[in-house]
């Protein structure tokens, strides 16, 4: 019975970290689908969002949900500004150059955090009202901070799904992702739409950044979680949103189980071993769209 409980716990905590990977991967995929650019700064955007959340909640003493909302809003503006100021002038340049720029953006964000008074290289935590407690789910006890991530991810994904599926603006974002040229032809303001997509990616990253804080603390290097979210996106088939979500969950769970049942050291490579196996069997990823995209 104890073994089953352990397994259930590993499954749930793995799933919660998997949700973090999934949301960060979702950010990768949204930007990639819209502009063919892989945004390597995605993890650092999450880190910056976490620092903002820490400042609003921990330093300024705002209520938790207000602080989360404000951090998302600020990061949305940061995302849109990055697109407007840094990426839009690069339109028409080779994609790899733009990808390198996103790596540069990541470095800049880390430097800015390090030199900001009150942030620096210290480790902080965010006092979430639910943190520290546990909940029992069908005989499995699970930490509230893990549960909160899972619930928030489900709500976020449902909201994004409804937005992309049923609103005109969401449809226009899908349309722009499928063909920028056609989007121009029907009068969709493509450049504005791209900025909005950056805003959504950055805001969702901020959400998981703040929620992750009670689990792993806020630190300038927490953005390296992007290195795990990237295989999650590839595993799902880069460019597929359901793929990013499932890929993130799988990697989170496999990592947790490997950390518990396998000798030390396997936890960190498990994601990449899994990725190699899946890509060997299914090169387009789990949910890869095989139809060629016209650009």
């Amino acid at each position: 019975m104890q073994g089953l409980n352990d397994f259930g716990q590993m499954l749930l905590s793995g799933a919660s970290i998997g949700c973090v990977y999934a949301i960060v991967a979702l950010g990768f995929v949204l930007i990639y689908k819209a502009s063919e650019v892989i945004n390597f700064a995605q993890g650092d955007l999450m880190m910056l969002g976490a620092f903002l959340g820490y400042t609003f909640i921990g330093v300024l003493g705002m209520p938790f949900l207000v602080g989360v909302g404000l951090a998302m809003l600020c990061m949305g503006l940061v995302g849109a500004a990055l697109d407007r100021v840094v990426l839009r002038p690069m339109v028409g340049q080779p994609v790899f150059a733009i990808v390198i720029i996103t790596i540069g953006i990541g470095f800049v964000i880390r430097s800015v955090v390090i030199v900001t008074p009150g942030w620096g290289t210290e480790t902080y935590t965010i006092a979430a009202p639910y943190a520290g407690g546990v909940s029992a789910l069908g005989g499995v006890t699970v930490g509230n901070e893990h549960l909160a991530i899972i619930i928030a991810a489900i709500v976020l994904i449902a909201a994004l799904y409804a937005f992309f599926r049923y609103t005109t603006l969401g449809l226009a974002m899908q349309a722009t992702s499928q063909s920028q040229l056609a989007a121009y032809h029907v009068g969709i303001p493509v450049k504005t739409i791209l900025s909005m997509i950056w805003a959504i990616s950055a805001a969702t990253a901020a959400l998981v950044g703040v929620l992750l804080a009670p689990v792993t603390f806020v630190h300038v290097n927490m953005g390296f979680i992007g290195l795990k979210a990237f295989p999650a996106a590839v595993l799902g088939g880069f460019g597929s949103i359901p793929g990013a979500i499932v890929g993130g969950l799988i990697i989170g769970i496999v990592e947790a189980l490997a950390g518990f049942y396998l000798p030390q050291g396997f936890k960190d490579v498990a994601a990449y071993v899994l990725l190699l196996v899946v890509l060997a069997l299914r090169p387009q990823g789990l949910f890869g769209q095989t139809a060629a995209k016209k650009v």
Binding site: L171, A175, Q178, S179, A182, H185, A291
Partner: peptide, 12 residues
């Protein structure tokens, strides 16, 4: 403007 390549949104 209806372009020569038609340019419908393939997955919509």
């Amino acid at each position: 403007h209806v372009p020569e390549e038609r340019e419908v949104f393939p997955f919509l």
